[in-house]
Simulated assay, not measured.
Amino acid sequence: MEEENQILKIIHLSSDFRGPDNNQSIYNLLESTGYFSNFDQISIDAIQAGLTKHPKVIEEWLEWSESKRGNSGWYFKNDNEKSVVGYYTGSEDTSSSINYSDLHEACATFIKNEIEDVRMNE
């Protein structure tokens, strides 16, 4: 049950960060989920299971990806036929991506990659 609550907090990070009452950084919000102490135990499959129960947050993560600004980073797109998760390095020649037929799996992969970036780079 504790892991399920943690996953729930993680999958809602995008909406929590963009919420009107938020005054914390994404790093602080992620830290408050407890992710830093057991990041290696939070799998893409566990995140995907959480998304299956709360699919509305997928749209929030698509918006998160679309509104990101920076020279490099993870991105997540969906065109109803396929979903794409990739990493943009700042140059079209060095970008890489993977196509997914399952929207939940793509979003879970994006979330895990994104929060690992936050954990490793802040």
Score class of each variant (00 low, 15 high):
W61R: 04
I42Q: 00
P20H: 09
H104M: 03
S25L: 11
E4A: 12
Y87K: 04
E66L: 13
I7Y: 01
S32R: 13
E92P: 12
V118L: 01
D79W: 07
I42C: 02
P55R: 10
K68Q: 15
F36S: 10
M1H: 12
S67I: 10
S25Y: 10
E66H: 15
V57W: 00
Q24S: 13
N71R: 05
G34C: 12
K112Q: 07
D79R: 11
S83Y: 01
Y100D: 04
Q24V: 05
S95H: 03
I47T: 05
S83H: 04
S15Y: 01
D79Y: 08
Q48A: 08
Y35M: 12
S95Q: 07
F39G: 08
I115M: 00
I111W: 00
E114D: 06
E114M: 03
E81H: 10
T52L: 12
L13G: 10
F110W: 03
E116I: 07
F17Y: 15
E63S: 04
N99G: 12
I44L: 07
Y75L: 08
R119I: 03
Y75K: 11
K9Y: 02
H12L: 02
Q48R: 07
A49W: 05
S32L: 10
E60P: 03
E60N: 13
K9Q: 08
F36V: 02
T94F: 15
E4T: 15
N38I: 11
G50F: 00
D40E: 10
I98S: 09
K77I: 07
E60F: 04
S67N: 13
T89Y: 14
E59H: 06
Q48I: 01
I98T: 13
E60V: 04
S96M: 14
S96Q: 14
N99T: 12
G70W: 01
N28L: 13
L13I: 10
S43A: 03
L30P: 02
R69M: 11
S97W: 05
R119A: 13
F76T: 04
E116K: 02
H54D: 13
E81A: 06
S14A: 15
Y88S: 11
C107D: 04
L103C: 05
T33I: 06
S96H: 15
N99F: 15
I26W: 08
E105F: 07
D102P: 14
N113D: 05
K77M: 09
Y88I: 08
T89V: 13
W74G: 01
Q24E: 12
D93L: 15
V57G: 00
D45C: 07
L8P: 00
R18F: 06
I115C: 00
G70Y: 01
K68V: 11
L103E: 05
M1A: 13
F36E: 09
S67Y: 10
D16T: 08
G86R: 11
H54L: 07
V57H: 00
D79L: 09
N22S: 06
L103N: 03
H104A: 09
I47Q: 02
K77Y: 07
C107H: 03
W61N: 06
S43D: 02
M1V: 12
T109M: 03
Q6L: 11
L62G: 01
N113F: 06
F17S: 08
L29C: 04
E59D: 14
K68R: 14
N5W: 00
N22T: 08
N71D: 08
H104C: 04
N113K: 09
E105P: 00
S14R: 02
D40V: 05
D21M: 06
